[in-house]
Simulated scan of single mutants.
Amino acid sequence: MKIQKRSTAIAALLLTATFSLAACGSDDNGDGGSADGGSGGGGDLSITMLPKNLGNAYFDTSTDGAEKAADEIGAEFEEVGPDTASPDAQVSYINTVAQQGKSALLLSANDPDALCDAIDEARSADVKVITFDADTNPDCRDLFINQATAEGIATKQLELVADQIGGKGEIAILSASANATNQNAWIETMEQELADNPDYADIELVDTVYGDDDDQKSFDQTEALLQNHPNLKGIISPTTVGIAAAARYLSDSQYKGKVALTGLGTPNQMREYVEDGTVTAFALWNPGDLGYLATYAAQALVDGDISGEEGDSFEAGDLGSFEVGADGVVLLGEPYTFDADNIGDFDF
């Protein structure tokens, strides 16, 4: 398997010197220096993974899972991506994948529609496009590997915050970017649940803010929420960057133990905050499994084992068999709750 990582700094260069870079194996490690990406078996199947942004612990884990699957199937694999999570920053990478004639693109989309023109170009060049984590318009891609249903994720987070604040009080949401498809779907469902479910009649959503999956901005937005809403009882952050930044702020503030924080995070980034009492419980799926599943789905599409139609099924290595649902969606599973009793059992 051949692994390469490139950052935003060389995006423009890739557009004009794609084959030259591929030949010499130049890589950018995201901080202005170069780093060897590693090498391995390679083969006829070539896969590029494009997360929302590099340097994100969540996507680092999903890439690890994809790399593992690529090793198992003997595929050539590379990860590329921008330093900041924006749709414009992803377009050049999609264009490069089309120019290189890659077999498949694994994409976590920063916008449901803004990337569709570039994706169409890639698909017209016979690149199979599999979205994971965050989807595009279904017409833009071949498959979407969904971590869990929007309803399941939204319901889990509301259950957690309601339990932690005793079923009443003001809450706020610290999201990623305002255009993030998955975040907006979860927030919309949470808003509907709060309006319709009598169990949440005494809970009021007073604000939704955006940290753009940037650590410092998410930290600052947490501070602003607490200053603007002195009666705030809980924060939901359905983004791994946001929940970690919010936990860091709360852990060293007067609000520790008084304002509940839950959402979606990885065990490794949240362990210290669970152990010191800043966070009681949070949820997530295994992002490594998400990348792993996306890679096997790419293989099935490229090999012609599936076409992406509802009812298609394929094998995904250690994860077993999966079936394509409506609108080309493949579901990994339901979110899992992490707390002080079990967080030590996980390492990702």
Rank of each mutant, 00 (worst) to 15 (best):
Q100C: 08
A122N: 02
A11F: 01
T16H: 15
T61Q: 15
P138A: 14
L158P: 02
A178K: 13
N137M: 05
E121Y: 09
P238S: 07
G30R: 08
A180T: 02
D212L: 04
D113M: 12
E223L: 02
L205A: 11
P230F: 12
L160P: 00
T262A: 03
Q183S: 10
L158Q: 00
N137A: 10
V91M: 07
A326R: 13
G30A: 12
F144P: 00
L105M: 06
A297G: 06
K128H: 12
A150G: 15
A23P: 08
S321C: 10
A70Y: 00
N184E: 13
D135M: 11
A172K: 00
D202F: 07
T278D: 04
I343R: 05
D341P: 05
G257A: 10
V324E: 04
Q4I: 14
L50Q: 02
A23G: 15
I235A: 02
Y210W: 13
G277A: 11
I173Y: 00
A118T: 01
I119P: 03
F314L: 13
L174Y: 04
G81K: 01
A178V: 12
S251I: 08
D199S: 11
G311E: 14
L205T: 01
G277C: 11
A224E: 12
E193Q: 14
E79Y: 14
G277N: 14
A98K: 03
G311A: 06
G166F: 09
F346S: 07
F314G: 00
S307V: 12
L261H: 04
A297I: 03
D117K: 10
D196F: 12
D207G: 05
Q147V: 01
N29G: 10
A300G: 10
F346T: 01
V209Q: 05
D215R: 11
I130V: 13
L15I: 13
W285R: 00
A11D: 03
G325R: 11
